[in-house]
């Protein structure tokens, strides 16, 4: 098997006149757990449907393990386990019966099928519901049965569309742990709009907005790139009056390793500044301020979360710029 398990090359998808995906390209290597992020309707599900071969791209192509996904594409489909959004399952079937059906469609039979079935039942924790009709299951159990179906043939690639939606917090922790465990040997793409989930499970994030890929990096780098740890500083002049802004700016900019100083609002005779730096400036800050007759009124470390990064990237350009600079 090649190292590159999934390659999406310049893919676009149109539904009638609506463009759901515009020229999206990315590659996923073996063993990566990639989180797809994006607002609702951004094109996450469409991208997944292209990879699983459920839909064909309007332009571009998708390669799975070096083979193009085209037409019926049974060869690439065999490599993928897929949990569609909302876990659509046959409500009138019993869980046990459904797993047998899935195993047969995955060309498993005899003792091997039995063994795989026992494994996925244990891994997904669905021992207690085997004899129940799927239609009577709770959302959490449905999701698990959907996952069991997706991994029954032990596929090298797993595509999970919102695997934790509708689950209670305990179930979410369980499923995440399960995904991380599966990710040790499989390539996984999962979509979500729960950001802590990505930070918790994924080693790479792809953010899609309005059909366009806007970011593709590790969660840490993404936060970093957005000017992660900024210092929020409030200064006032001697006697508690508003400081000379020009002078204060100069002092701050003269510090070692400063990248950017952004003046913010003035309030109660103090001026606020946002300071981004490549190294921690706190050790030298006080000395410089005292030498220049400036009083430090407030100092806090502002850690940007993936949540804010996400907002920056997916709100429209202008709004995010304003948010950045003001």
């Amino acid at each position: 098997m090649s190292e590159e398990m999934i390659a999406v090359e310049n893919c676009s998808k149109k539904y009638g006149s609506f463009t759901a995906l515009k020229d999206v390209s990315f590659k996923v290597k073996r063993g990566e757990i990639v989180g797809f992020l994006g607002p609702n309707g951004a094109g996450k599900t469409t991208t997944m449907k292209l990879i699983t071969g459920f839909l064909a791209p309007s332009a571009g192509r998708v390669l799975v393990n070096g083979q193009e996904v085209t037409g019926e594409s049974t060869a690439t489909k065999a490599l993928i386990g897929y949990l569609p959004e909302n876990a659509p399952l046959y409500d009138e079937m019993m869980v046990d019966e459904f797993l047998d059906f899935a195993a047969r469609l995955r060309h498993l039979s005899g003792p091997k099928a039995q063994k795989r079935k026992e494994t996925v039942i244990k891994v997904c924790g669905i021992e207690g519901v085997l004899g129940k009709d799927i239609g009577t299951l709770s959302k959490g159990y449905r999701q698990r049965v959907g996952l069991a179906q997706a991994i029954i043939h032990d596929p090298p690639i797993l595509i999970l569309d919102e695997p934790t939606s509708g689950l209670d917090p305990n179930q979410i922790v369980d499923i995440r742990a399960l995904i991380r465990k599966l990710g040790e040997e499989k390539t996984i793409i999962l979509s979500t709009h729960i950001l802590p989930e990505v930070e918790a499970t994924c080693n790479r994030v792809i953010i899609i907005n309005k059909g366009i890929l806007v970011a593709d990096d590790t969660p840490e780098n993404l936060i970093e790139a957005q000017g992660s740890s900024g210092l929020l500083i409030a200064l006032s002049a001697a006697g508690g009056s508003l400081p000379d802004k020009e002078k204060a700016l100069k002092v701050l900019q003269s510090l070692n390793g400063i990248l950017k100083v952004t003046p913010l609002r003035d309030e109660d005779n103090t001026s606020y500044f946002m300071v981004h730096s490549s190294q921690d400036v706190r050790p030298y800050l006080l000395k410089a301020l005292i030498e220049n007759d400036l009083y430090l009124m407030h100092l806090s470390l502002k850690q940007l979360s993936l949540e804010e990064t996400f907002r920056h990237l997916t709100l429209d350009e202008k709004a995010s710029k304003e948010e950045n600079h003001e």
Binding site: G53, E72, A78, E85, L105
Partner: peptide
């Protein structure tokens, strides 16, 4: 209608 078509259409089956 129920979405299960997506399940069966992504199995390694011919149309």
């Amino acid at each position: 209608k129920s979405g299960t078509f997506e399940l069966i259409a992504t199995m390694p089956l011919k149309d």
